[in-house]
Design a protein around this nucleic acid. Structure first.
Length: 282
DNA sequence: ATACCGACCTGTCAGC
DNA sequence: TGCTGACAGGTCGGTA
């Protein structure tokens, strides 16, 4: 489920709760594992590592890991700098979540990894559909495409200049923009008044400018609302988001456009549903 | 090079 | 009640 605003929300709640904590041990489930790195690689990097911070890159959660300053000689008072160890990369796929839990809490079905923390709590990775991915990397991680919240108008416009693909598909292409998914692609197009099937290269300057602004503002509003909870999305504290109440078109097929009262349409583009108002969007 | 399509998984819901 | 099919926030690899 999670797109940029949801991953950002999770990253913030995780950062607030577990930064500075230390991972004591890791349990990884057996099923066909949703892992990019092997279970051994993941466990060996995580175990004993201190969580230096949590952030978002595209739709990925990046958990920065460091070696604790002074492994055993606590009290010797040596203030050494922490050595960077690497990063734990989590992609949540459609249904993934990361929860900070008390060990006594019921372990949900489809829990694939549990990291026990020095504070006595647990970090749990749960993912029913197993579309998510876990990896560890040593080198600095960066998502493939441009960050939608940072890209300027000129670079944004250049992404679409020669593409014949529908604008909706281009927005979903993570090599162009990283973090935009089905909900916010539809919502940005709705706010910009552009039909999802329009060829990307056919957008005029003024439309690109509108789309650039709409995308940024819808993502920022959604972050402020804690993301969209369609069915099961929750952040690391178990909180639901509430941006779904501000959707103009996504998931509103047959309902009335909030602007002009025309019935919202749903079509399929490259196998994904796309929602739009036939009157407001040209 | 680009773009579409099915595959990957499990769960839920509508319809019969 | 239970079966079937459609659908779900995402990506990948193969094919045209």
């Amino acid at each position: 489920m999670p797109e940029l605003p949801e991953v950002e929300t999770i990253a913030r709640s995780l950062a607030r709760r577990v930064t500075g904590d230390r991972i004591e041990s890791v349990w990884i489930g057996d099923k066909p594992e949703p892992l990019k790195s092997s279970a051994g690689e993941i466990a060996s990097l995580l175990e004993g590592a201190q969580i230096a911070g949590v952030r978002r890159a595209g739709k990925h959660l990046v958990i920065d890991l460091a070696s604790p300053a002074s492994p055993r000689g606590a009290g010797r008072g040596s203030a050494r700098a922490e050595a960077k160890k690497g990063q734990w990369i989590v992609h949540l796929g459609m249904t993934g979540s990361v929860l900070v839990s008390d060990p006594a809490e019921h372990v949900e079905k489809h829990t694939h990894l549990i990291a026990r923390l020095a504070s006595g709590r647990e970090l749990r990775f749960v993912d029913p559909r197993r579309f998510g991915r876990l990896a560890v990397v040593r080198e600095a991680f960066s998502a493939p495409g441009n960050e939608p919240l940072e890209i300027g108008l000129e670079s944004f416009a250049a992404l679409f200049r020669k593409r014949k693909t529908p604008i909706k598909s281009a927005l979903l292409n993570q090599k162009l923009l990283s973090g935009v998914g089905n909900i916010y692609a539809d919502e940005a197009l709705a706010r910009a008044g552009i039909r999802p099937r329009r060829r990307a290269a056919s957008l005029r300057r003024a439309e690109l400018k509108k789309l650039h602004a709409s995308l940024k503002s819808v993502l920022k509003q959604a972050i402020r609302a804690g993301g969209s909870s369609i069915s099961d999305y929750v952040d690391a504290d178990g909180q639901r988001g509430f941006f779904q109440f501000q959707h103009r078109v996504y998931g509103r097929e047959g309902q009335l456009c909030r602007v002009c009262k025309t019935s919202v349409k749903r079509i399929v583009i490259a196998g994904r549903s796309a929602h739009y108002c036939p009157r407001c969007q040209k």
